[in-house]
Amino acid sequence: MDMAAVAIAVTGVAGTRGPGETLHSAGDAQRELWSLIKVMRHAMRQDLGVAGEF
């Protein structure tokens, strides 16, 4: 996912930055989201009894 797609996903608006938002802060936010998704995916796989990591 590129930074423009992240901006749209987070703000709902393409090309609109929040106050003080930079490309660096957007990248940090993207990494934080992926980290949360990884934790959620792991919990869901455990709930389903699926072994292994992908």
Rank of each mutant, 00 (worst) to 15 (best):
T16W: 09
L36S: 11
T11W: 06
A5F: 01
L23Q: 14
M3R: 09
M44D: 06
L23S: 13
Q30H: 07
D2A: 05
E53V: 07
G27C: 04
G12L: 04
F54R: 15
A51S: 14
M3N: 04
E32D: 08
S25L: 11
E21W: 01
V13A: 12
E53D: 13
L48S: 06
F54E: 15
A43V: 10
E21I: 01
A4K: 11
I8Q: 10
V13C: 07
V39C: 05
V10S: 09
G49N: 07
A5W: 03
S35M: 05
M44E: 11
G52W: 00
G49K: 07
G20L: 11
V39L: 11
Q46H: 15
I37E: 07
A51C: 10
R45Q: 07
G27E: 04
A43M: 13
G20T: 04
V50N: 03
F54I: 13
R45Y: 06
I8L: 11
A14T: 07
V39P: 01
H42G: 13
M3T: 13
M1E: 03
V39Y: 02
M3W: 07
P19M: 02
A9F: 10
G52K: 08
I8F: 06
M3G: 04
E32W: 00
A51E: 15
W34E: 14
